[in-house]
Simulated scan of single mutants.
Amino acid sequence: MALTFELDPSIGPALRDGITDLWADVSNAGGSVGFVPPVSRETVRPELVKHFVAMAEGRTRLLIGRDEDGTVAATAFLTRNTHRLMTHWLWLYTVMVHPRHQGKGYGRDLLTAAADAARSLDGIEAIRLTCRGGEGLERFYGSCGYKEVGRVPDAIRVSPGDDRDDITMLLSLGRLD
């Protein structure tokens, strides 16, 4: 069964806790979303609050995907670029699909929903995201239409002696207007 996506859902305790649980579960399963396992919900929560602050300031939009039970199963945060010469593209952050749903095509569905959301915003022509090297993520994003446009070698220190590339990917939205 497919996920149901919603842009800009109402934030309440249930949604906050659902995203916190998702983020911790993805991190603890080895997902590259800003943490290294093991991670607790208490560790994740301050990072989520930073996203919520950006949302309250109007800089960030939240896209969630719910499974058939209504549980938060996927997220992505769309953040407008505030530099006056770069407002035609936005950043995609914290792209996650719960481990129990991986391998079902939901990651592709999430990226399609994010691109559709970005296309609905005035003046947005592209999406940029970064990913951690060594996980094969650039191949996945590439299969979804993103192009690698930059790489900083060894920019992410997962642990002492385990440095990974920081890879920047770009999706052109093909704006004709």
Rank of each mutant, 00 (worst) to 15 (best):
L121C: 09
T112I: 15
L111W: 02
I64E: 01
M86T: 14
R66N: 05
L110Y: 02
H51R: 15
D116C: 11
L90T: 04
A115G: 11
L121H: 07
D109P: 03
G134M: 04
H101C: 11
M86G: 15
G65I: 05
T75S: 09
H98E: 09
A117W: 01
A118Y: 00
G58H: 06
E138T: 10
I64C: 05
L110H: 02
E125Q: 12
G133Q: 06
S120H: 07
R132F: 03
K104Y: 03
G65A: 07
A118C: 08
V53P: 04
N81I: 10
F52D: 13
G134V: 08
L137S: 03
L90N: 01
T130H: 09
F77M: 12
H98R: 13
T112R: 14
H101D: 06
N81A: 12
M96Y: 00
E125C: 12
G107K: 01
G107W: 00
G103K: 05
L111A: 08
V97D: 00
G107T: 05
L62V: 07
G136C: 08
L110C: 07
I124G: 03
V95E: 00
G107E: 01
H98C: 07
G136L: 08
H83G: 13
Y93R: 14
A118L: 06
A74R: 01
L110W: 03
V97G: 00
C131M: 04
M86S: 15
F77H: 10
T71A: 14
A73W: 01
R61E: 10
M86N: 15
D109F: 02
R80I: 12
M55T: 11
G134P: 03
H98M: 09
V53A: 14
R59A: 14
R84G: 08
I124V: 15
R61V: 08
S120D: 13
C131W: 00
R59N: 13
H88L: 09
A73S: 11
I124E: 01
T79D: 04
G70L: 07
G136W: 04
M86R: 15
H88W: 10
D69A: 15
P99L: 08
G103T: 06
G105R: 02
L137W: 00
R108P: 00
T60H: 11
L121S: 09
R128Y: 12
R61Q: 14
A113V: 07
R61T: 09
A76Y: 02
E57S: 12
A113E: 05
R80C: 11
W89M: 11
L92A: 14
G134K: 05
R66S: 09
R100C: 09
G133H: 04
L92V: 15
A74T: 03
C131T: 14
D116I: 13
D109Y: 02
L85E: 09
K104S: 10
E138A: 14
D69S: 15
V72K: 03
K104F: 05
L121I: 15
E135S: 13
R108H: 10
R66C: 08
G70I: 09
R108Q: 12
G107P: 01
H101M: 11
M86Q: 15
L111M: 15
T112C: 10
T112L: 14
V97W: 00
R84N: 11
T112E: 13
E135R: 13
E125Y: 05
D67Y: 03
M96G: 04
L63A: 08
A126C: 02
C131V: 11
R59H: 14
T112Q: 14
T79R: 12
A73I: 05
G65N: 04
G58S: 08
M55P: 03
